[in-house]
Lab assay of single mutants.
Amino acid sequence: MLSDEDFKAVFGMTRSAFANLPLWKQQNLKKEKGLF
């Protein structure tokens, strides 16, 4: 599990902003970052 700081560094957004994205968009971002 990423820390909040690492999460923001990897995804360029906060966890709450990420959580507001549609599920497909979350999955695409995870795949792009190799976290899926």
Rank of each mutant, 00 (worst) to 15 (best):
M1T: 12
M1W: 14
M1G: 13
M1C: 15
M1A: 12
L2W: 11
L2T: 06
L2I: 10
L2V: 06
L2M: 12
S3W: 04
S3M: 05
S3H: 04
S3A: 07
S3K: 06
S3D: 10
S3R: 05
D4M: 03
D4S: 05
D4Q: 03
D4W: 04
D4G: 03
E5D: 12
E5A: 12
E5H: 10
E5R: 07
D6Q: 12
D6L: 09
D6V: 09
D6P: 02
D6K: 07
D6G: 10
F7M: 02
F7V: 00
F7E: 00
F7L: 02
F7G: 00
K8T: 09
K8M: 14
K8C: 06
K8N: 11
A9H: 12
A9E: 11
A9V: 12
A9F: 10
A9D: 08
A9W: 07
A9I: 12
V10S: 04
V10M: 12
V10W: 10
V10N: 04
V10K: 07
V10D: 02
F11A: 01
F11R: 00
F11P: 00
F11N: 02
F11T: 03
F11K: 00
G12A: 03
G12W: 02
G12Q: 05
G12Y: 03
G12H: 05
G12D: 05
M13K: 01
M13H: 03
M13C: 04
M13T: 02
M13E: 02
M13A: 01
M13W: 03
T14A: 06
T14V: 04
T14P: 06
T14R: 01
T14S: 11
T14Q: 03
T14E: 08
R15C: 07
R15Q: 10
R15W: 08
S16D: 13
S16T: 11
S16G: 09
S16A: 14
S16Q: 14
S16N: 11
S16H: 12
S16P: 08
A17L: 05
A17F: 05
A17R: 05
A17N: 05
F18G: 00
F18N: 00
F18H: 00
F18R: 00
F18Q: 00
F18W: 05
F18V: 00
F18Y: 05
A19K: 11
A19R: 12
A19W: 08
A19D: 12
A19P: 01
A19Y: 14
A19Q: 13
A19N: 14
N20I: 09
N20E: 14
N20Y: 06
N20C: 15
N20H: 10
N20R: 13
N20S: 14
L21D: 00
L21N: 00
L21R: 00
L21V: 02
L21K: 00
L21W: 02
P22C: 01
P22Q: 03
P22M: 02
P22W: 02
P22I: 02
L23T: 10
L23M: 12
L23F: 11
L23H: 10
L23Y: 13
W24M: 04
W24V: 05
W24C: 09
W24Y: 08
W24T: 05
K25P: 02
K25S: 05
K25N: 06
K25T: 11
Q26I: 02
Q26N: 01
Q26F: 02
Q26L: 03
Q26E: 01
Q27I: 15
Q27P: 01
Q27K: 09
Q27A: 13
Q27H: 13
Q27F: 10
N28C: 09
N28L: 15
N28I: 15
N28Q: 15
N28S: 14
L29R: 03
L29H: 03
L29M: 08
L29I: 10
L29F: 03
L29Y: 05
L29V: 05
K30C: 11
K30L: 15
K30F: 15
K30N: 09
K30P: 02
K30E: 14
K30A: 15
K30R: 13
K31V: 12
K31Q: 11
K31E: 10
K31W: 13
K31L: 10
K31Y: 12
K31R: 13
K31H: 11
K31M: 12
K31G: 07
E32T: 06
E32P: 03
E32K: 06
E32G: 06
E32R: 08
E32Q: 08
E32Y: 07
K33M: 13
K33T: 11
K33S: 12
K33I: 13
K33D: 04
G34H: 09
G34S: 07
G34P: 05
G34Q: 08
G34R: 05
G34I: 07
L35Y: 15
L35M: 14
L35C: 08
L35K: 06
L35N: 11
L35D: 09
L35H: 12
L35R: 06
L35W: 15
L35I: 13
F36V: 13
F36D: 14
F36W: 15
F36N: 11
F36M: 13
F36Y: 12
F36G: 11
F36I: 14
F36E: 12
F36A: 13
